[in-house]
Amino acid sequence: MKKSMLLGALTVAGLAAGAASASTLEDVKARGELNCGVNTGLVGFAAPDANNNWQGFDIDICRAVAAAVLGDPDAVKYVPLTGKTRFTALAAGEIDMLSRNTTWTFSRDVDLKFEFVGVNYYDGQGFIAPRELGVTSAKDLDGATVCIQTGTTTELNLADFFRSNSISYEPVPIETNAEALQQLLAGACDVYTTDASGLAASRATFENPGDWVILPEIISKEPLGPLVRHGDNDWGDIVRWTLNALVAAEELGVTSANVAELSNGTDNPEVNRLLGTEGGLGEMLGLDADWAANALAVTGNYGEIFERHIGENTPIGLARGLNAQWTEGGLLYAPPFR
């Protein structure tokens, strides 16, 4: 490693070559850092603030994994990726996991050989339109100009939706969310379509959010979740169960405030197994016993993460909706820790 640093000096930038070991977990531990692929900028989900600290819902998943694996939530290198570059970066091993509101689809899972470890946000594609346009349904959009962000599943959904309703439209592909919004605000497109969460996040940044309506149609299912490469199931398990731990913690009432206290042992055996005082689940993953406790202490449970970045008290103001616990009528259902 160090010798290669010297080579790097010669090639100016630092060639971080190293013998690849078979296991991502060992790589991450040896490196002391988790490489996490994130969005280049979507407020609420992943965006650097003025001080260049990454903030957001997807970011906290990276932090939770880093805390679980390395015990340090800040030992994360965030790799901003566009829709185009994200999969190659993951396939090439540039990143260890991708947490970039990526839709779980058959072809990505099977054909592109990735492993989606779960769903951290149930989303769907929607439309936002100015109120003065007088549109109440996406089916009224015959002949409309629609802005889309390229490199995502939204393009395909859009084509399918308009085709199945046999109405015509004019797509305007835009590379970044910010530029698409500019087009929408200037009236260069009638509606903008992306994941409903993204629409809400964007509407929050408008001058007069009340002048904009989000149309009722949700034209696709967009289960967004973190993913890893095929072939390293141990690493996939770690990311999957870190995510599950966040969800389960909310169901079990474990929060960042009480996790330290609960870690001393409780009457609830499942909480004990989750927090590592019982059962030795951490060792099975190849991690410390208090892996989940570490993660929870940093980021809090799923509900806390949600409320902090995209919940109703933030400018983005998303309701839990489908993303509530199954006990509350949502779809979040963590398998048992046993």
């Binding site: 829709g83 185009k84 592109l112 390229t150 393009e155 395909l156 592909p173 590379e175």
Partner: peptide, 22 residues
């Protein structure tokens, strides 16, 4: 063209097709 969403060959073949098929 890719910067302004004009669908030239970089936008179709090197853009959306590349993204959707990997």
């Amino acid at each position: 063209a890719i910067a302004v969403g004009y669908m030239d060959v970089t936008g179709t073949l090197g853009g959306i097709t590349l993204n959707q098929t990997g």
